[in-house]
Simulated scan of single mutants.
Amino acid sequence: MNFEELKSAAKENLKGFCRVCSFCDGKACRGEVPGMGGVGTGSSFIANVEALSEIKLNLRTIHDAKEPDISIEIFGEKLSMPVLAAPITGTNYNMGGKISEENFIKMVISGSKEAGTLGMCGDGGNPVFYESGIKAIKEENGDGIAIIKPRENTEILERAKRAEEAGALAVGIDIDGAGLITMALMGQPVGPKTKEELKQIITKTKLPFILKGIMTVDEAEMAVEIGAKAIVVSNHGGRILDHTPGVAEVLPAIAQKVKGKITIFADGGVRSGVDVLKYLALGADAVLIGRPVIIGAFGGGKEGVKFILEKFAKELKQAMILTGCKDIKSVDEKILYKK
């Protein structure tokens, strides 16, 4: 299997739902929600990609970073790379249904584990979404993270309990899903949370808690204040609110305030290991990838997911060699070119 073969198979299996463009920038699928695009004009999806593309790196080759160590530790677990599979659901209405929800998330969780990292499972209007993810995590002895929609607190806590019972490494809410159209269409509305509501959830959960969908400094500081263990700087892939900035635009200010106080994940527009390096240099501790994982699963199943993650890992290593970074801790803003 090579990347072109993987993309070709994915294009066939995703026909009518994703064009598997030569470069995935959100322009061909503007407004295709449900589907694989960004909401409205698609500007938020596009902004994620363009914000990353505008960042330039300093090429350095006089150093001793010949064999970079890209391993990291998240919530006490050592991972082979600072790249995790983002929570993704809706194979039927977003991706055409050639792969069932249960099989898809099993591919993601298992493929991620085989690559030495973790996959996240998601939630949605159909109960099978979350159930399939929890089942996949349990089958992999807890090697996965469960992310829940911002439902009523009682429903979130019930799902968090199931994640605990499955042995999941962590649990969280994709609070950026507060306005998801697809959830409303399925009769399960979601919405924002107050600090008090979030505190109630976090204090009743045994697992490290993640808030996914943080795009401002004040909300990042609130996450620290209420006891969350991690945030995901994300605009939900540009799929919920039109005209937001790209993640790379807001990440530095957030990292400046909360780096070291809370684990920071970045999510949005990542298309290569070089993009991973950029997010790390901007202040992220690890990075989530979504659409590339879909291409991997629809193009090659579990092995395809593993292939994509390992491809990103190889690209990251090469980029670290060429910027003089011997390990993830040594990646910082010094590798970024500033006029």
Score class of each variant (00 low, 15 high):
K317P: 04
L211K: 11
L14T: 02
E155Q: 04
Y130N: 09
G76S: 06
G300E: 02
Y279C: 15
A115V: 07
K195H: 05
L322S: 15
I46P: 01
S100M: 06
L280Q: 06
P34D: 10
G167M: 03
F129L: 11
G133M: 07
E131P: 06
L57I: 04
E333N: 08
K317S: 11
I321D: 15
F104A: 03
K204R: 15
K338P: 10
S132R: 10
D123F: 06
I72L: 13
K27I: 15
I137C: 13
G90T: 02
E32W: 04
Y279W: 10
R60N: 07
G167S: 04
M320F: 13
A10M: 14
G116N: 15
E77C: 00
R271A: 14
E101L: 12
G290C: 09
L185Y: 03
E102Y: 14
V258L: 09
Q318P: 05
K314G: 07
V83C: 06
L251Y: 01
M215I: 14
R19T: 08
A10R: 10
L241P: 05
G26S: 09
L59D: 09
I335L: 10
H63T: 14
K334W: 09
V250F: 08
R60P: 02
G179S: 01
K317F: 00
N58E: 14
A28Q: 15
I46N: 01
Q200C: 07
V20M: 03
G238V: 04
I147Y: 03
G177M: 10
C29M: 10
V274T: 15
I328G: 04
F298G: 03
V305W: 00
A253K: 15
D218T: 08
G324F: 11
E131L: 11
G142P: 04
G238H: 00
S43W: 00
V83S: 03
M222Q: 09
M186E: 14
P87H: 08
P208Q: 02
T182Y: 12
I105M: 09
I264G: 08
I134V: 14
G142H: 01
I231S: 09
D25R: 10
V128S: 13
V49H: 14
K204L: 13
V83Q: 09
D69R: 07
G177W: 05
F17K: 03
I181Q: 11
R291C: 05
T182W: 15
V83L: 11
D267T: 01
V247L: 01
D285G: 11
L207A: 00
A86L: 01
G133T: 13
M95I: 01
V250E: 03
V233W: 01
T203L: 09
L79H: 01
G26H: 07
T216R: 14
P150I: 06
